[in-house]
Write a protein that binds this DNA or RNA. Structure first.
Lengths: 352, 352
DNA sequence: TTGAAAGCGCTAACAG
DNA sequence: CTGTTAGCGCTTTCAA
């Protein structure tokens, strides 16, 4: 037997009128004009201290909540921002999302989340759809071209994570230094030939990683090959076969998801890690420390990045439009977490 | 040298007026009244086919986008829903979130995400804050009491995931059957004494899990103890010590996060899994298949649950208020994924 | 310092 | 079937 739906007339709970208390209710109750109530909230210094306090008290007592939509209409400001990520289920983004959510929430903003599923078209469609509802966009690991991002940025406030573009606020983990750390680590272990298992063709980070790896390899004097692209998921195990075929002694995967997939495939093939081949990833995602062997990977401060990308956008939103201002651009330090998946080069012959 | 900010006057890109095209622009251009344009979008059948098509064409050409805030004002409907989860970074929720985001998006709704960080107070605060901006709430693994949920549900449309409450739409994975499967699996392996490592005190799922485990254990004739509560994170390794101290031959963790933490602690202690002790988890999260040993765990269709919880809410939102309607209540099937962390009971003596 | 009044963009009666 | 007219709740000139 189902009990009566609460909030319906006739139920145990008295059906309060669903209409929320407005600025007018407060005004009437406080004996002032609606505009004064409005000011008391949005421009406190422009109303007499005593009236303000009184009005605020009445509002409190009546349980007044400003209606964000009504507020958005005359001001054009919604106090909502959108975060678009290519893959909501990729652990890489978890902490980024959390950081962004926290920072937005702290600043009194609401965060809406969009999953672009690695598709530039979907990304644009999301932007299009969300544009009238939000004050700006946080684009994380955007799959758009530079052109497209500029275009979007010309139309709406934008802040970038894992991507840099002249004149647009951005935050990235320092992949250049990080990639060098990887190469140095591998070189110190005796490796002379490494392969980079690349991710999505449109991944800006990926291009950077490869460039940094190649630069460092050249300078240190070992050979680096770029293989792929491979899907940046644990299902990208095929990358392992490509790596094996290439003959490198160390595989550097586009991200940890792919690295874990590679680890698996290698295990299936009976290839020992790190004895036969070393594997390194990027991101230090959840799981990188307990896969087997635990993954050597480049870690970045993701939650921090999430907060920072929000800062970049808010800074832009609040900036006085007339003043010229250096664009907000942040590079966060990375560090190599050395675990069990990287080790000395296998010796060509048996023991001496 | 920084290039001029796009969208500023003086930049290379001409600064288009930021004012969006409205219903009036379309009306003027099409030579009809604004209300006709409005109807063409929201009530297509009430406008002459030819005018409608013409108007829609003009709107298209002008790049008209309805302003959701303006639309929300007279209707009270925002086409936005909020999803609140206790821990954004818990992989358990990833697929739930994705499912919800997809379903919402498909239905033309926008999803806003809130992280309650396992705190009932924060959960209420989020609801309070978001209430004027959304049409309803999706509460996943809510940490609120039944009382509190009823109260919230009396005030706003609510749909529940991982929780059931009379008269409120809900979706849960069938933990009862699932827990029985776990007990049967363990019993078939020869275990006679198991311990449940419990999670948050306010976890409704947790209480269910324990109840189901206890029932099944009693019926099948093995003893089950409830230990804890322990934090439901990988950092909850202390649960392993409690389990060891208790002397059970199988440990059933509140969730996979905790189970993975237990696995780790056990490894540190030199306790072999499953030879010395078996470990089972709940959720089949990302990583459960590649931790070591891979985790035996109860899997549920999370993405499906995400879609379903959205359906529950939309159904409620669109329901004719006057008609009595059976509450939308779904139980999704679960299945036990048997991996390497569960095995036969250790024999008391050595080999015979 | 405060009030009156005019919108923000859209919907929804109500006439015609 | 379509146009006119009020608002939705709030902000923001403009006067007083």
């Amino acid at each position: 037997m189902t009990q009566p739906e609460p909030g319906r007339s006739g139920g145990a709970v008295p059906a309060r009128p669903p209409r929320a208390v407005t600025i007018h209710d407060v005004a009437r109750e406080a004996g002032v004009a609606a505009s004064t109530v409005s000011r008391a909230f949005t421009n406190p210094q422009r109303v007499n201290t005593r009236t303000r306090e009184y009005v605020l008290g009445v509002a409190e007592r009546l349980g007044y909540r400003p209606n964000p939509h009504a507020r958005a209409l005359p001001t054009g400001r919604t106090r909502t921002i959108a975060l678009l990520v290519p893959d909501i289920t990729n652990p890489h983004f978890f902490n980024l999302i959390r950081g962004a959510e926290r920072q937005a929430s702290t600043a009194g903003y609401t965060l809406v989340l969009g999953d672009t599923e690695e598709s530039p078209e979907r990304e644009l469609r999301h932007i299009e759809r969300l544009a009238p509802a939000v004050d700006g966009f946080l684009l994380a690991s955007s799959r758009l071209s530079d052109e497209q991002i500029r275009e979007v940025s010309g139309r709406h406030p934008v802040s970038l994570a894992n991507r840099e573009l002249e004149g647009i606020p951005s935050v990235v983990a320092n992949q250049y230094d990080g990639s060098r750390q990887i190469i140095e680590h591998l070189a110190s272990l005796g490796h002379r030939s490494v392969a980079y298992l690349s991710g999505p063709r449109h991944s800006w980070m990926g291009q950077w990683r490869w460039r940094a790896l190649a630069d460092a390899a050249r300078q240190i004097g070992l050979t680096a090959a770029r293989l792929g692209p491979f899907p940046p998921y644990v299902t990208g195990g095929a990358a392992a076969d490509a790596g094996l075929g290439h003959g490198a002694t160390a595989l550097i995967a586009h991200n940890d998801l792919l690295a874990i997939g590679v680890l698996r495939r290698l295990a299936e093939r009976g290839v020992a890690v790190p004895d036969d081949i070393s594997v390194v990833g990027y991101d230090d995602i959840f799981g990188a420390d307990f896969c087997s062997p635990p993954l050597t990977t480049l870690a970045g401060p993701l939650e921090n990045a999430g907060r920072t990308v929000v800062d970049g956008l808010l800074e832009k939103l609040d900036r006085v439009p007339s003043r010229d201002h250096p664009p907000y651009r942040v590079r966060l330090p990375t560090h190599l977490v050395i675990r069990g998946s990287s080790g000395p080069t296998p010796r060509a012959g048996g023991p001496p």
